[in-house]
Nucleic acid binder design. Structure first.
Length: 418
RNA sequence: GUGGAUAUAGUUCAGUUGGUUAGAGCGCCAGAUUGUGGCUCUGGAGGUCGUGGGUUCGAGUCCCACUAUCCACCCCA
């Protein structure tokens, strides 16, 4: 127990961390280009925020939150998703009083108490973006394009973008009535889960995977046929924006997101080759959320992308993230004096920005060279009494094995010039 | 929360119908004459066989519980 990470968590070891750094770097670059600024919110919030934000009928709230009472008697919950904390901060710091829209992004761990499996952890990491204050469908399209750009730049082009509109409180209410009417006749044949869904959120019956339910809902009325004029034109507009950017997408009227706050646009980006948990990115519009959380009546749209799932997808597609380069120079020493001398030399070169390594294990010269090879050193030098006295070293090019004799002071320039 | 599979060196795995000191590849360390890596060869370190019980003269092997991992459902990123 002591030497085991808790269930559903993962260490990112040095052999993997470069991949995370690469992806995070790319995310920051893209967000910068698109004008999204980073927001960092706490790892935990007052539980009420998520009850309000995510919604009490969702599985996340009902059974997946890491909730505890702190020593001051407050109910605290570890961040299970990124949107509500961003909304809370937006309201708390009056960001709505600034020039709109507000474009935010974050890379954050999120916590959900679930049964772990492939692509699903209790602590996972999400990249998310949010646009607050813009009701135009162009904001929806912009958010989607951020996700698509990232995926494309990573070399992923066989992912599926699926979009839908789940309507607004007005037309959804209408549609729910129609759908319930439709389902009523077959209510007794629905699975037990769907009987509950019928009452709480009938939309969810549509994406049930039980075959008998699918048969029943095969000809069910679709939300897209019952949208009000506003929602309908918003959805059509979104498609125009996606078309003009040249993105392929599928209209899937059965996409229902599991968070209560979504209105109008809902979308998913799905990878077919990472198992059952294929949704790499999911998001949509939430025009009522900011007000629901105690802020002004302002629209919002955003997405969350699971970084672990993204990494799995990359691997499944044989996409390799460039490995960091090896060290520029390995300095080997012979003798006690040189041991000290090279320590200072390494320090000086490092200060000047060279990647330099040196033995710390009291290895033999031969072992030092082996070590240099293992570190993927581009160059190596050996310093002993002779070299210190004459101020001369042989700079060895490790890739070919050739050596050139230069003075110790020349090392830095020689390596930087290559 | 439900169902199924699995658990042996750092790692990937082998281990006969239960039978003495549990093996291999890769990795790690050291040598192959004196101050030079990669290839090769030789040697070495490293395991209370997930944990705890039970059956047995005897358990890595059989049984039970627990824990963890993997897969699917639920749901989601």
């Amino acid at each position: 127990m002591l030497t085991k990470a808790p269930r559903g968590t993962k260490d990112v070891l040095p052999s993997e961390s470069y991949k995370w750094q690469y992806i995070e770097g790319l995310i920051r670059e893209i967000c910068d280009v698109y004008g999204f600024k980073e927001i960092r919110t706490p790892g935990f919030e007052h539980t009420e925020l998520f009850l309000r934000g995510v919604g009490e009928s969702t599985d996340i709230v009902r059974k997946e939150m890491y909730t505890f009472t702190d020593k001051g008697g407050r109910s605290i919950t570890l961040k299970p998703e990124g949107t509500s904390p961003a909304v809370r901060a937006f309201i708390e710091h009056n960001l709505y009083a600034e020039t709109q829209p507000t474009k935010l992004y974050y890379i954050t761990p999120v916590y959900r108490y679930e049964r772990p499996q492939s692509g699903r952890l209790r602590e996972h990491h999400q990249f998310g973006v949010e646009i607050f204050g813009a009701k135009s469908a162009s904001a929806d399209a912009e958010v989607i394009s951020v996700a698509m750009t990232l995926l494309k730049k990573l070399g992923l082009n066989n992912l599926e973008l699926r979009i839908n509109s789940v309507g607004c409180p007005v037309c959804r209410k209408n549609y729910n009535k129609v759908l319930k009417e439709f389902l009523k006749n077959n209510l007794e044949y629905l699975c037990d889960d769907c009987k509950v869904r019928y009452e709480i959120n009938p939309l969810r019956v549509l994406d049930c995977k039980v075959e008998s339910c699918q048969r029943i809902t095969k000809d069910a009325p679709l939300i897209t046929d019952y949208l009000c004029d506003d929602c309908k034109s918003h959805f059509e507009e979104l498609q125009k924006y996606l078309d003009i950017m040249g993105y392929d997408y599928i209209i899937d009227p059965r996409i229902v997101r599991g968070l209560d706050y979504y209105t109008k646009t809902a979308f998913e980006i799905i990878s077919k080759d990472i198992g059952a948990q294929g949704t790499v990115c999911g998001g949509g519009r939430y025009d009522g959320l900011i007000e629901e959380c105690g802020g002004p009546s302002m629209p919002g749209v955003g997405f969350g992308m699971g970084l672990e799932r993204l990494l799995i997808t990359l691997e499944q597609n044989g996409i390799e993230i460039p490995k960091p380069e090896g060290v520029d120079l390995f300095i080997a020493y012979v003798g006690e004096e040189a041991k000290l001398f090279t320590f200072a030399l390494a320090n000086k070169l490092r200060f000047n920005g060279l990647k330099v390594e040196r033995d710390n294990m009291d290895r033999s010269l031969k072992a030092q060279m082996k070590y240099a090879n293992k570190l993927n050193a581009k160059f190596a030098i050996v310093i002993g009494e002779e070299e210190m006295k004459e101020n001369k070293v042989k700079l060895k090019d490790m890739s070919v094995g050739s050596e050139v004799e230069i003075s110790i002071d020349e090392i830095e320039q020689r390596i930087k010039n290559i």
